[in-house]
Write a protein that binds this DNA or RNA. Structure first.
Lengths: 197, 197
DNA sequence: ATACGTTCTTAACATAGGTGCAGTAGGCTA
DNA sequence: TAGCCTACTGCACCTATGTTAAGAACGTAT
């Protein structure tokens, strides 16, 4: 696993928009490397999110506290550009925390730089596409949630070969699916029993 | 109810971004008025959405066909700027239809004009904010769906004084809440019984 | 007026998808 | 060695919602 390889970021951006060397140097100049050890928080609930991040490697988990329980909202795997959108845009305290599940390499950009960089057409274009993409993802999750049970969603993760299955503890997977760990166990049992026969 | 009052649109935009007369004339030049009678479709599932719309007055309903059933996804009330995002951006057939529940006055802009207008900084700025806002809404709906039952969501609509309660037939409200009309009736009965005591 | 379709309500009953508790087992850390 | 956490399993139980079936209220067309 390479660390701090700018090309990962650049290639990632190139998937969204064409980007020349001049744009790229402007963009990368705004980002600074930051290492996040497994188990530590990149963002803590209640604090204001003041950065835009790019995840180069590792794995992150968004979660909230709900009735004294740690509830996993979703995961971010590399390469991905993200922030705590609501907190970042409104400058209000974040409702969720972001935890590294594995040692992660991220690049971060300050709010001030972010606002400045939006003047750059290439970046502006990228951001718009990214936000639309996030919107599509959210809609997709919403749809799945309405149409499928936790079991069906878990089966689909398997069918789609989600890399999360190998990397995420089952307790987090369970809360991500919206069920108790016992229920996930039962589902797993059912699936593997059937698979054997 | 005034018809085709450009000021409604302009004031709406002003809530997102400052807008001078020159910008405004460029923007409004791209939009053309269109009346949608109650009960008719602004967009039909399977067709490609080729416009951006602004809803000046009336009420719209997004719905999809799912297992031979008409399922309401959400409603749009004025003033609001919208489109079938996925279809519009990807030029793929829309998965949902948009129906007018009341006689509605909308303004429409072609795809070509939309792309051109994005070059205008004011408009670009507005679009980015709008897409972020839509993302917030979707996230909020997702959260509610995970945390609340249909009954709780219906109660909250009442508590928040949603205007939909007066305007939308209960059958659509039921499918919007994700339950059968009978179930909504049961919930309503329960609420009103309790309210009386 | 009458008849018809649609929407909404009510009731009895069924059920899927989940919870909670309790006990067991394996692995890691101190 | 003990202690702790995670995961698995069996069982009883719950509850939100579906299903079915019937009737009431309302508007519209004939």
């Amino acid at each position: 696993m390479s660390r701090y390889d700018q090309n990962i970021f650049r290639n990632y951006l190139a998937d969204y928009t064409t980007i020349d060397s001049k744009d790229w140097s402007q963009i990368i100049a705004c980002f600074h490397p930051k290492e996040v050890k497994a188990g530590t928080l990149l963002l803590e609930e209640g604090k204001i999110c003041r950065h835009v991040y790019f995840l180069e490697s590792g794995l992150l988990r968004y979660f909230v506290w709900k009735d004294g329980q740690d509830v996993t909202k979703f995961f971010t795997h590399p390469p991905y550009c993200f922030t705590s959108q609501r907190s970042f845009n409104t400058e209000q305290p974040a409702r969720e925390s972001i935890e590294a599940l594995q040692d992660s390499y991220v690049w971060e950009m300050s709010r001030a730089d972010s606002l400045r960089l939006l003047e750059l057409k290439t970046w502006n274009n990228f951001v718009l596409k990214l936000v639309q993409e996030v919107q599509f993802f959210t809609e997709r999750i919403l749809e799945d949630l309405q149409n499928e049970t936790a079991e069906q969603r878990y089966r689909r993760m398997i069918a789609e070969g989600s890399p999360l299955l190998q990397k995420v503890p089952l307790k987090h997977l369970a809360s991500y699916l919206g069920i108790a760990p016992q229920s996930l166990s039962r589902i797993r049992k059912k699936i593997y029993e059937h698979a054997r026969t």
